[in-house]
Simulated scan of single mutants.
Amino acid sequence: MPVLASFTCGLIFGAGLLISGMTDPQKVLGFLDLFGAWDATLAFVMAGAVAVTASGFAVARRRTAPTFSARFLWPDRNDIDAPLVGGAILFGIGWGLAGICPGPALVNLAGLSLPIVVFVIAMLAGMIGQNLFGKNLWRPRTMAPRAETASLPSRADG
């Protein structure tokens, strides 16, 4: 049942992206062009998404358990750290350059457009690279205790 619930949520999300125009890179770039031909329609999409999400969280917080899972998996962190800021900056740069982000890219993948296929491959490579190498990049640096070394004889000992 959880797989069916996940599939249904993904289907609704994908349909919402299509209907709202979030899958059209030109529409997204028009929204991001604040000092040019700004297209404000995606602001209404985002406001609607925030309203629906806030309502959903309000209902979920009053429940003792989710419908299709044994327990809620609420986030346990709320701090702002370097990986969060760095990731947000990279996401914003990529979104601004391409006019597409991961969700809409996966929806657009159904059309097998070469630029979208390349985008998704690059996105997957970035995700794999983060899993392989990124964990060490963002780890806080601490001074490791020095290993005890055998004392060398001094000149006075010799």
Rank of each mutant, 00 (worst) to 15 (best):
A125G: 10
G36Q: 12
T8S: 11
G36N: 08
F35Q: 14
A51P: 00
S151H: 15
V59W: 03
G99Y: 03
S55T: 11
I80N: 15
S151C: 14
T142V: 10
A156L: 08
G87P: 06
A144R: 13
I116T: 06
V28Y: 00
L137G: 03
P2F: 13
A125N: 12
F57K: 07
P145M: 06
A122D: 05
L97E: 12
A58Y: 01
K135Q: 15
V118W: 15
L84W: 11
L109M: 12
V107D: 08
V107I: 08
L4V: 09
G86I: 00
V117P: 11
P66D: 14
L112I: 14
K27L: 06
V120L: 09
S20R: 02
A37T: 01
L34C: 01
S151R: 15
E148D: 11
G158V: 15
V117Q: 14
G158L: 14
G111D: 15
K27W: 02
V118T: 09
A54H: 05
P102F: 02
R63S: 07
A54Y: 02
G14H: 04
G92T: 13
L29T: 08
L137V: 00
L106A: 11
G14V: 01
G126W: 03
L114M: 11
S151I: 11
P25V: 10
L106W: 04
A147G: 09
W74L: 04
I19T: 06
M127F: 09
A49C: 04
F119A: 06
V118S: 02
D33L: 02
R139W: 05
L132E: 14
G158N: 12
M22K: 07
G30N: 02
I89V: 15
N131P: 04
E148A: 09
I128V: 10
W95G: 06
L34I: 07
M123P: 03
G94I: 01
I121F: 10
A54K: 04
G134N: 05
G158F: 08
V28S: 02
W95K: 03
L109Y: 01
P25F: 02
I93S: 03
L29P: 01
I80P: 10
M127W: 10
I12C: 05
V45M: 01
N131V: 10
A40E: 01
G10F: 07
N131Q: 14
V50P: 00
I100V: 12
L97M: 13
G92K: 05
P2M: 13
A156S: 10
A60V: 06
L42V: 00
A105H: 03
F91L: 06
L112S: 12
V50D: 07
T64L: 12
L32V: 00
S6G: 13
L18H: 10
G87C: 07
M22S: 02
I19F: 03
V28F: 00
R63E: 13
A144V: 07
L152V: 13
L84P: 13
W95S: 04
L112D: 15
D24R: 10
N131T: 13
A47W: 00
A47G: 03
L106D: 03
C101G: 12
T67L: 12
V3R: 13
T53L: 04
R139E: 08
A40L: 00
T41E: 02
R61D: 09
A156Y: 02
A147V: 09
G126L: 04
F31H: 00
A54G: 07
F44N: 00
L106K: 05
W74F: 14
L17K: 05
